[in-house]
Design a protein around this nucleic acid. Structure first.
Lengths: 319, 319
DNA sequence: CACAGCAGATTAATCGTTTTACCTATGAGG
DNA sequence: CCTCATAGGTAAAACGATTAATCTGCTGTG
């Protein structure tokens, strides 16, 4: 059905070896021959059979991607960035789901290996460790791990959020995360408190404790920094029901720059990641690992402020 | 490095053929031999080299998945469902991005083919047609197309939304979509107006026309049905700024049951899809296509109401 | 006793490509 | 005129599995 290498060879009365060499530009083939071969390949619409090639070379040009629970709303953009970066390097991306279960995470990786991946990119589920694998692995956002290749600067992002709020004059700030069990969230909160000005009061709150945010705002807190836009949205609607409005009654900053952040009104100020850069570095690291086996050093990519409408500049009281 | 079929054969002093036959349970191999071979395979941690197998059988056990612009917020759950369904049928999923461009959609498909997929599932970008491909294709949600294998019942979903609103006593309802260029959105709206009660007034609105929703609600419309939770969220925050609150001042129903729908307060009533069922049917259709080549008939899967807090029962005026 | 039939295993071809080692003119240099 | 390097090309061996065809003893039967 589909044309093979040998079809080109037969049509041109040359050997398959010559065709292969000509198309890959590796051996010594006359310019004229190369031209004729390429022309014929084109005419037939030839593209090499990936299995034949993979079997011979030991490389499938496919990498696996393991994503954490779908609950993570960063999923789509991260996946997309990984796919695009992989494409740049001529790799396809096999995707696997860790099914919200740490155990399944390893199963997923095994499946990817068994399907023939050349390497794996994993964004681990919170609280899991990625075991040693028979093929190269690049881990994203595994803040502690040795296999980590690149992470977002979550602490730095937290610092940016608080810095922005403090510049706008806020001093009593609520830092709210969802659950302590997420290292990423803890790190973000850590960055926040680390950036506190000497005269500022930051209060750490976890949604799992069902804190009384409305009461705290009424008691004089003027701003909220969250570890996720999702939390910000939840808070925003709850405070709204209580009659507290944005940005006049309090200021709010989210995290992750999710899709809806720019759509709601007022638009949510938040902290964004360069998924593209993270993906690019992860893929770069992984391809190096695949090609040379040399370990790559872990990198941190900065986050940035997405300035929108939910942070209000406070009037200076004294100067 | 990794054990091959022949390693097992050598260790047990049998031929490779016997090992293959034993492991696949196909040929005539004595029970005792099968047991010994399986034991040895286990001991070595053998798993077959996918390229060798694929080259011989002509099947890679991998299907491709082409997703539309990332703007579609259904993306993550749909992808996940497809991956899970594929897994059930022992297929891996190669993912490709259509880069928000209709032209790239075909490029993406070509890449998947060149990478060795056995078939392709595509959720086409709005307004694009999927050309003929060298391998089987199952199209999801291509309302018109012949290649369509399964779609959600968007019109039915619209009808459910309006039905629910009408049951709660609403008669003046705003139906708001984002853009007329989306066939899915037009179909949803179509379903809505088709379900209108004789005494009801439904008004079609498109965000691209920047309609004055606040004014219309003040003028007496009591409910809004949208074609997407995203639109619902946008409206909800805008109306909130204008002092119109949910559910006392108006009722609202979204579409798609996005992540945030259950988190905001009050929680958003919306129309949900069974992504799992759609995915299951798509994969089933595709595997049939791959194995037998027999065309499968297109199916429609129903949507359902997710009843939450944004629809208010209106007091009966007359009885 | 000869032979058909069968269980249990093996041989060898095959899938499509890459790549090493080898072959054969041709022209240059001595 | 002989040798030799070299350019241009080819043959053949992998890679790791599957599977059709074949072989080898047996057993049971007429």
């Amino acid at each position: 059905m589909k044309p093979r290498l040998s079809d080109i060879a037969r049509n041109l009365s040359v050997s398959a070896a010559t065709v292969s060499l000509a198309l890959s530009g590796k051996g010594r083939v006359s310019n004229e021959m190369v031209a004729r071969i390429k022309a014929e390949a084109n005419r037939l619409g030839y593209s090499p059979n990936p299995m034949g090639k993979a079997l011979r070379t030991g490389r499938s040009q496919v990498i696996g991607l393991v994503l954490p629970d779908v609950a993570n709303p960063l999923f789509p953009r991260m996946a997309r960035s990984i796919v695009m970066a992989a494409e740049e390097h001529d790799f396809g991306v096999l995707i696997a789901d860790s099914h919200d279960s740490p155990a399944k995470q390893n199963e997923a990786m095994k499946r990817l290996v068994d399907l023939g991946s050349d390497g794996i990119v994993v964004i681990p589920r919170k609280g899991t460790e990625v075991g040693p694998q028979p093929i190269p692995v690049a881990v994203i956002d595994a803040l502690g791990s040795a296999q980590n290749v690149v992470s977002a600067d979550h602490a730095g992002g937290g610092a940016i959020a608080i810095g922005h709020l403090q510049e706008a004059g806020h001093r009593r700030i609520l830092c709210v995360g969802e659950t302590r069990s997420s290292l990423v969230q803890r790190t973000r909160i850590g960055g926040m408190v680390g950036a506190a000005a000497p005269d500022a009061q930051l209060l750490q709150l976890w949604l799992e404790d069902a804190p009384d945010v409305v009461g705290l705002i009424r008691d004089g807190a003027t701003a909220i920094a969250t570890t996720s836009d999702m939390i910000a949205l939840q808070l925003l609607t709850e405070l709204g029901k209580a009659g507290l409005n944005l940005p006049e009654d309090y200021s709010l900053v989210g995290f992750d720059n999710l899709d809806f952040a720019g759509i709601i009104s007022p638009a949510l100020t938040t902290i964004g990641t360069s998924e593209a850069e993270i993906a690019e570095r992860a893929i770069l690291g992984l391809t190096r690992l695949i090609n040379s086996g040399a370990p790559v050093e872990s990198q941190v990519v900065p986050m940035h402020l997405v300035r929108r409408e939910t942070v209000k500049q406070l009037a200076r009281r004294k100067n």
